[in-house]
Nucleic acid binder design. Structure first.
Lengths: 340, 340
DNA sequence: TTGTACGCGTTATCAT
DNA sequence: ATGATAACGCGTACAA
């Protein structure tokens, strides 16, 4: 009568019990490796299990245990960025690794529409996960609200400005940007500009702030070219505009490696040599940095570390520990290569 | 007494029922929008719901409904490839979109270790998903075995050679490779080589087979340089070896866009101009293709389409339809740009 | 229209 | 050592 997707009825503990001629309780005990079960019963039950092809229904177990041993990994990125940004894969792998060590299942949920937002919200409140790692939430993100109201153990990678009582892990974009700009200045450049990206995000504006503070009195707003995204294309186009406007430029801090790669291409098209005519530094130390010619000097972003650390923060809460709401910042060493 | 991660006890249907002064059955009915409930009851219950802050426990609902309305998306890639390959993100987005339209939750599970394999196997048999989309399973993959034995509705993206009674969606790597090689030959090149990648995968060996068949009698094995991965670096190094061995070469089919980008860089370092000295074509039409200088002529791989189609195949099985085990192949138009 | 009672597959608490 | 039995939170015949 039913068009249910269930193909073959799956065996339950009950089936095993009748097959082995014992009670469900005893079966449950051997499954969970508890003491106080006779060798007779154990062997009989083990035989019955493989005979009827029993596999435990974790969903039912979770219902009574009141936990799932699973942690959500929510990625909420604008379509294009998700494909473009190599960091996000690394963050995911880092989180998966940390959760895996603690025997927790990472389940990644992607939000790509309002419909997704609502469905994921239902999923989170449905008891399928014990906690969540959230990467790149936007300001005033509905998902952030849901997590708060559910008070689901959580950790954010990066911190939207409106994050109040939720822990996060990130890097100091401002200090890192300032450090690499200083380093660039030490090479003797006198007209140093920046291709600033994604100024609507805290990472974008912080990197610009660091650049500005490194230059101090020598800061010249006309040497800053804002572009919307951290992308190759944006870098290419931004650099073309900047070169047209300020031909004297001899140093560039690009807001990301992808942007830097685009900028370098634009320089080559314009007949400028890197690093002879213009010194270039980037940000991320992503795979991009080794693909440019010459290889890019950049700020190393500890992507897998960010994911792993965020996962650990969630796991700690699951153990009942109180999270540190101040947030944790990871180190970002400068990697100096040939582009400056 | 308990160190449970549960912070605040969540309200249940029962709580709503007592608050509204009705029975649980009635509450359940208004939640599921059924008929036969008085306006009085409905308003009282709706008030009670928001008062006690009730959110449905989907996990419990699934237990009784015997389905989860969730579909797994399993990615089993060698570490590096996962980060490198832009296609996988697009496939994921395509699958998510198709599932989203059908109001199903996509849950992505990544397998990055043996431990992961075992845990994911438990997860799949635990009743958390009604079906799975599997991307890039290896030959003799344990996960494939699990899926078969569970007979979980599934669809593979790409098809490992040992896939028997499981449906898949893919592209015709051989025919596509042959087509673009022919197109390259039409530009008048006489010494055309290939940087062949990942020959241990069917995609890799099929692309080589297509190249070979396009050349026919003119095929010369010494013009084929095998590299292990579909990566930029492998392309760069492979091209260097090929140039050293066969300086006369004037055309290259690279097994992927990333490989082609690496190869082009190697050509530039060696002082060869593209496309004047050497014509280059790639495969994938990924973001790489627009980053090379000049832009890459390549085979378009319908990544989002692959994901969407695979998801639809799973959804069809969930509706009780029998899957087409022959597999479905998607179109791969040639995109001609400036590199050849 | 509404309430009752049972079942989904487990684990846990009792007795025995 | 083992077997009833009560949860877990929900849907649903069936009865009222």
């Amino acid at each position: 009568m039913s068009l249910s997707p269930i193909r073959r009825k799956r065996a339950t503990i009950h089936d095993v019990a009748v097959e082995a001629g014992v009670s469900r309780g005893t079966v449950s005990r051997v499954i969970n490796g508890e003491r106080y079960v006779s060798d007779d019963a154990r062997t009989a039950i083990e035989a019955a299990i493989s005979k009827v092809g029993y596999v435990p229904n974790t969903a039912a177990r979770n219902l009574v245990m009141q936990r799932s041993e699973a942690v959500g990994f929510i990625v909420h990125e604008p379509h294009s960025l998700f494909l473009e940004d190599p960091n996000i894969g690394a963050i995911m792998l880092g989180a998966n690794d940390a959760l895996s060590r603690a025997d927790h299942q990472m389940v990644c949920l992607v939000i790509d529409s309002d419909r997704d937002t609502r469905r994921v919200a239902r999923y989170l409140s449905g008891g399928f996960v014990d906690g969540v790692v959230v990467v790149s939430a936007r300001e005033n993100d509905p998902i952030t609200r849901i997590i708060e109201s559910l008070d689901l153990p959580a950790a954010f990678v990066g911190h939207p400005p409106d994050l109040r009582r939720l822990p996060f892990v990130g890097i100091d974009n401002r200090a890192s940007a300032e450090a690499i700009t200083r380093r660039l200045l030490q090479t003797g450049r006198t007209r140093v500009g920046m291709i600033a990206a994604a100024l609507d995000r805290d990472s974008g504006s912080d990197r610009l702030a660091g650049f500005r503070s490194a230059l101090g009195d020598r800061f010249d707003p006309s040497l800053v070219e804002p572009v919307p995204f951290y992308s190759f294309k944006a870098g290419f186009e931004g650099m073309q505009r900047l070169l047209a406007r300020e031909p004297e430029i001899d140093g560039i801090f690009a807001a990301s490696d992808a942007v830097a790669a685009g900028a370098i291409d634009a320089m080559k098209v314009a007949g400028r040599s890197v690093p002879r005519d213009i010194g270039v530094v980037g940000f991320d130390d992503s795979a991009w940095a080794e693909r440019t010619q010459p290889a890019l000097s950049t700020v190393h972003q500890p992507a897998t570390g960010l994911g792993a650390r965020a996962a650990e923060i969630v796991l700690a809460q699951l153990r009942g520990e109180e999270p540190d709401l101040a947030g944790v910042l990871l180190e970002t060493p400068i990697v100096w290569r040939g582009s400056a």
